[in-house]
Design a protein around this nucleic acid. Structure first.
Length: 851
RNA sequence: GGGCCGUUAGCUCAGUUGGCUAGAGCACCUGCAUGACGCGCAGGGGGUCGGGGGUUCGAAUCCCUCACGGCCCACCA
């Protein structure tokens, strides 16, 4: 307990209380509690590659509202925090910050230090993979620290002893273990297959990370030679892929082409005989109604290739350039191999873009292109972080099979979604799934696959016969660890072994966050107390990735949902209704600056206005209101506790006091019901509305009686009611305004308010001996209000005297008024209050003559 | 092209299963030194509830339709 300051202030509350909570272990998880006493949260690990902006603050705060509520409800909250340091974004950030670039062919240099300053135009310094991974670790640690500072200042009640990295040893162990188990069950496999490929980052990309961008392109009308020697025009936007053409396709019902199905056509320039086939994905309306299938121009090509059993004639390599080809060799048959070779030599080694320019010239010169290219705009697939269109290359990749759609849809129905309509996004995604989940990334900084490949005596690596690590040896790094039965000397030698060079896709690891945080296999005791988890908070745009994949993994590993509830947050928009940019940096909306200016509680108040799943405008006006609310709490508390000496013991007997507490009991019930449905916004709204009328009406009405103006009995009742009301309201506000409520709590109560029990309506009702008449306070407030209006219109002070007030109303309401008459007269400075029975409410006010 | 969400005062938003005269805060205007707070208090003006149809005694609320904004998904010829 501490004394009440003369002039209470919000300044410094964040620093003081976050240090105190840390020292006292206020939010430390007590792992002796059983599963039914625990509320466990699968916190989204923020990616440390960027900057935190108000959108992050908003959604993480939403989770904290729930965590604090559940803690006060008596649940032991398991609330960890992870750092997502996995993935290409971190790699890119590290490249920029350190001015380096990973070159896996280089040896480790233990003395390497990155340059002090990195200019934008400096050439990146090539470093070895171990060096680069080291740098990633250092950069990530700095970023984690700045994230921790912000989360702590904004008041997240995270247990900071429960942190993890998505690329740390625990996460690596869990990811590799799950991978090995899936492999053993045939649910994961290795295959060579067409893969979406980013040529700049030289890595495979999963379906979930694609985005369409509208790009200018052009139709080129290529003249094929039909089966009977006639001309067969084909429209294409990718003429450079002509050498990779393996078939022509038209719709089965298209009468124009039906006679040609089963026969062959000859490609221009290269003279390749390709079959003419039918498939219903061919659109008679597009181009000439017959399309060329290339390996591979787009995902439709992949579908056609797979479903029609076509051969592969791949020409685009991983660097985005056309590879050398020997025409006339198997698979590259031509009616005129020398001519084909001559043309192709003009293209080999060029990028697809350069090759396109050149082949258009060649086609024109040969007279096998009709007219000029016709410009169009069309959507092109990009990796969401990439800068050039994706290509499709064939390569060796690890895949996880998707469970069947029905099973996934059933899981989606078992899960409680907040808000409910977000389930539809999940269902849309499940229904649109294609192929399997490629979990391979050709990068350096990530979770490696626990696998090696045998090298035969000729030095050929057998990429389809992996040597797998033993589960007990995890985590392993195949580039430094050696498989059983081999020695380090045999690495990359004929008859030896080669390490799997790739790392897992980010989602392959982060889809295991529930297993990682709850100690799956590694800590069975913790696991039993926390899994399946209670709540997964996350953003809606990663339903198709994080949420979906996490369900897949848990479905496979545990045959259960990973959590019972998914709470989906909306976006934060800037005042112009545009989505916040990710690179907020030192912008005016930098969260740290907002906290300095308004206080953490005020920022949290603003965030609470974003209802579950709804978008929220970044609005400093709301932050200002939050700040006012926090200040009001300080001042009202100072009045109730300091001046009026309220207490939580003693009997509440006065009808006005009982009326107020009964109304508050209703608010408690509503707030509790709202919180149980994860609707923190409604809980705050009800609490706040009550609090302001409590200040404006009840406090004014009761003030003089509490000072002792009408005797000891009335004073005792007032003090007890004030104490109960204050304690209850502080608790209702505590999840939202943890700093100011804790401050006030410390003036008169022991312990932390955040470990106190959530109030119930029943405890208030029993304190006033059952339900009292709420209308006593309402009627008294209305009469007081009309008196104020009269004073205001007469431009008098609220303290000015009133000679007489005549209230006309129904007998019932007059009876209610009578129970608070003393308080109404005292608050309004009314000399004489008389009543007249009538049918409707009216008040006649006679102000005293001006002095 | 399909789906989801939204559209209520100048701004940000409430408005539970249809029901008294549609609410709050901010902003604006007019006042007020009152034994907590001037970062306060009291009062005031301001809305054809996106448009159009329908159901109903009664619709911001239910149904249909259109428009606009945002998001998600979709086979790039």
């Amino acid at each position: 307990m501490s004394t009440i300051p003369n002039k209470p202030s919000l300044d410094g509350l964040e620093a003081r209380w976050r240090a105190r909570w840390e020292a006292d272990g206020t939010y430390r998880f007590d792992r002796t509690k059983s599963r039914d006493e625990v509320f466990s949260i699968d916190t989204p690990p923020p990616t440390v590659s960027g900057t935190l902006h108000p959108g992050h603050v908003c959604s993480y705060t939403h989770t904290d509202f729930i965590a604090r509520y559940q803690r006060m409800r008596g649940r032991e909250v398991f609330y960890p925090m992870g750092w997502d340091d996995n993935g290409l974004n971190v790699e890119r950030r590290v490249q920029l910050l350190t001015g380096t670039r990973c070159d896996p062919s280089l040896p480790y240099d233990p003395d390497f230090r990155p340059p002090e300053k990195v200019g934008k135009k400096d050439k990146p310094i090539p470093v070895s993979r171990p060096n680069f991974v080291e740098l990633c670790g250092q950069v990530v640690e700095q970023l984690e620290q700045s994230y921790f500072e912000l989360w702590s200042t904004i008041g997240l009640s995270v247990d900071w002893t429960q942190t993890y990295r998505t690329i740390g040893p625990r996460a690596t162990r869990a990811s590799q273990r799950s991978f090995l188990r899936l492999l053993r069950r045939g649910l994961a496999y290795r295959a060579e297959s067409p893969t979406l490929w980013d040529v700049d980052f030289r890595t495979a990309v999963a379906q979930a990370e694609l985005e369409d961008r509208e790009l200018p392109g052009a139709y080129h009308k290529l003249l094929f030679t039909g089966p009977d020697g006639d001309t067969l025009p084909i429209d294409t936007t990718r003429p450079e892929l002509l050498p990779a053409c393996v078939a022509l396709v038209a719709h089965p019902d298209d009468d124009r082409y039906r006679p040609l199905f089963g026969r062959t056509a000859r490609t221009p320039l290269f003279g390749v005989e390709v079959p003419i086939v039918a498939h219903e994905l061919a659109d008679p309306e597009k181009g000439t109604g017959i399309a060329m299938i290339c390996t591979f121009g787009d995902t439709t090509d992949v579908t056609w290739w797979r479903e029609l059993g076509l051969p592969v004639r791949a020409i685009v390599q991983r660097d985005g350039r056309l590879r050398p080809v020997t025409w006339g060799s198997p698979g590259w048959e031509s009616t005129d191999p020398d001519k084909a070779q001559a043309y192709y030599d003009e293209l080999a080694g060029k990028t697809v873009k350069q090759a396109q320019t050149r082949i258009v010239e060649l086609l024109g010169e040969a007279g096998v292109m009709e007219g000029e290219p016709r410009p169009i705009k069309h959507p092109v697939k990009f990796w969401e972080n990439g800068t050039r269109p994706l290509e499709i290359v064939t390569s060796h990749q690890w895949f996880i099979r998707y469970p069947d759609k029905e099973a996934m849809l059933t899981r989606g129905k078992e899960l409680a979604w907040w808000p409910e309509f977000m389930r539809v996004r999940y269902e849309n995604w499940v229904n649109g799934l294609q192929g399997d989940w490629n979990i391979t990334r050709q990068r350096f900084f990530g979770v490696p696959f626990p696998a090696w490949y045998p090298i035969d005596e000729d030095g050929t690596v057998d990429y389809l016969s992996p040597i797998l690590a033993d589960e007990d040896d995890l985590p392993v790094d195949p580039t430094t660890d050696v498989p059983a039965g081999y020695t380090e000397e045999q690495r990359n030698q004929p008859g030896g072994f080669a390490a799997d060079p790739d790392v897992m896709d980010t989602w392959a690891t982060s889809s295991l966050t529930p297993q990682i945080v709850t100690g799956w296999v590694d800590d069975p005791d913790l696991f039993a107390r926390t899994f399946p988890m209670d709540m997964r908070p996350q953003a809606h745009e990663i339903i198709r990735t994080w949420l979906f994949y996490t369900i897949v993994r848990s479905h496979y590993e545990h045959d259960t949902l990973p959590w019972h509830n998914a709470t989906i947050s909306g976006f934060v928009f800037d005042p112009d209704r545009k989505k916040l940019s990710k690179s907020a940096g030192n912008a005016p909306d930098d969260p740290n600056r907002l906290i300095e200016r308004f206080g953490a509680d005020a920022i949290r108040y603003w965030a609470a206005g974003g209802r579950p799943g709804m978008d929220l405008a970044l609005d400093q006006g709301q932050m200002k209101i939050g700040r006012k609310l926090a200040i009001k709490l300080l001042n009202a508390s100072k009045l109730a506790l300091g001046n009026l000496e309220s207490t939580t013991s003693g009997e509440v007997t006065d009808p006005l006091d009982r009326s107020m507490l009964t109304a508050l009991a209703g608010v408690v019930d509503e707030a509790t019901a709202a919180f149980d449905k994860f609707d923190y916004a409604r809980a705050l709204e009800r609490t706040e509305a009550f609090f302001w009328t409590f200040c404006d009406n009840y406090l004014e009405l009761v003030k003089n009686r509490a000072y002792g103006s009408s005797g000891e009995a009335g004073q005792a009742s007032a003090r007890a009611a004030l104490g109960l009301a204050l304690r209850t309201q502080l608790k209702l506000f505590a999840p939202f305004l943890p700093f100011v409520t804790e401050e006030v709590w410390s003036w008169w109560q022991e312990g932390s308010i955040h470990r106190s029990s959530w109030p119930t309506g029943d405890e208030l009702r029993s304190a006033v001996g059952g339900d009292a008449d709420r209308a006593v306070l309402t009627v008294a407030g209305e009469v007081l209000s009309t008196v104020r209006k009269a004073k205001s219109e007469a431009k008098r002070s609220m303290a000015s005297a009133v000679d007489r007030v005549v209230v006309t109303d129904t007998p019932a309401r007059l009876a209610q008024l009578a129970q608070a008459e003393q308080d109404v007269r005292s608050a309004g400075h009314i000399a004489e209050l008389t009543t007249v029975e009538g049918t409707s409410f009216s008040v006649d006010v006679t102000l005293a003559a001006e002095a």
